[in-house]
């Protein structure tokens, strides 16, 4: 454990809690892509199956369980409890365009051709693109509430900090997880445009982030 990884995990947790509380307190999931949240729930489910096969640390186990619970709680808020506020018309990204290539790639490029490893690889690839329905939705509607942009900021910051973690681990431990690193770079690139808008519009202005 190093400071980059710990702060990355904290940012990830903060992002998920921000989104959950935003929906819970406003009793509305307007502007939130249910598809992205479903994909994240799928990411956690397929990645954390090793909860049943390997014990790494109490921290690792607790965080995995918390992420899983919060992911499914968020999905259930969007699709059940506050379904009336869900804007399914704007959430029109075709997720099969992500799922099919990601599934194919995880069969082709993995560390070990076993069910658990393929699912882990699938989760890493899927995570790198899971935010696209949300970004697509913002592009389509042309705006996002500032609380939604804070969520995206922390979510983007999390994988960016993991990049620093991987550099650190490579130098300190000789540890290099090629699949995670390449996917993490791809994932971070998707946030670059958003980061720019976040700093120039949300933090300097107030209220919603509107696109030009």
């Amino acid at each position: 454990m190093n400071i980059f990884r710990l702060s990355g995990d904290v940012c990830h947790l903060v992002a998920i809690i921000i989104l959950f509380l935003k929906i819970w307190r406003s009793k509305s999931c307007a502007g939130i892509s249910g598809k992205s949240q479903l994909l994240f729930a799928l990411v956690f489910t397929t990645r954390y199956l090793d909860l049943f096969t390997a014990f790494i640390s109490i921290y690792n186990t607790v965080m995995k369980v918390v992420f899983l619970v919060l992911a499914y709680a968020t999905v259930s808020l969007i699709y059940f409890r506050f379904r009336k506020s869900y804007d399914s018309e704007s959430d029109s990204f075709r997720v099969e365009f992500l799922l099919v290539p990601v599934a194919g790639l995880s069969f082709l490029e993995n560390y070990s051709f076993t069910p658990l490893e393929i699912l882990w690889t699938f989760s890493i690839y899927l995570e790198s693109v899971a935010i696209l329905p949300q970004l697509f939705m913002i592009t389509k509607t042309g705006e996002a509430e500032s609380i939604t942009t804070h969520y995206l900021f922390f979510l983007g910051l999390y994988r960016t900090l993991y990049l620093a973690n991987w550099v650190w681990r490579y130098h300190e431990e000789g540890f290099f997880d090629q699949i995670a690193v390449v996917s993490g770079v791809v994932q971070t690139i998707f946030y670059c445009d958003f980061f720019y808008l976040y700093f120039t519009r949300v933090l300097r202005g107030s209220g919603k982030m509107t696109l030009p």
């Binding site: 096969t53 390997a54 014990f55 790494i56 560390y111 000789g174």
Partner: peptide, 10 residues
Amino acid sequence: EYDVYGHDEL
């Protein structure tokens, strides 16, 4: 060192 039986990162 890669361990196929578990991943220590989240």
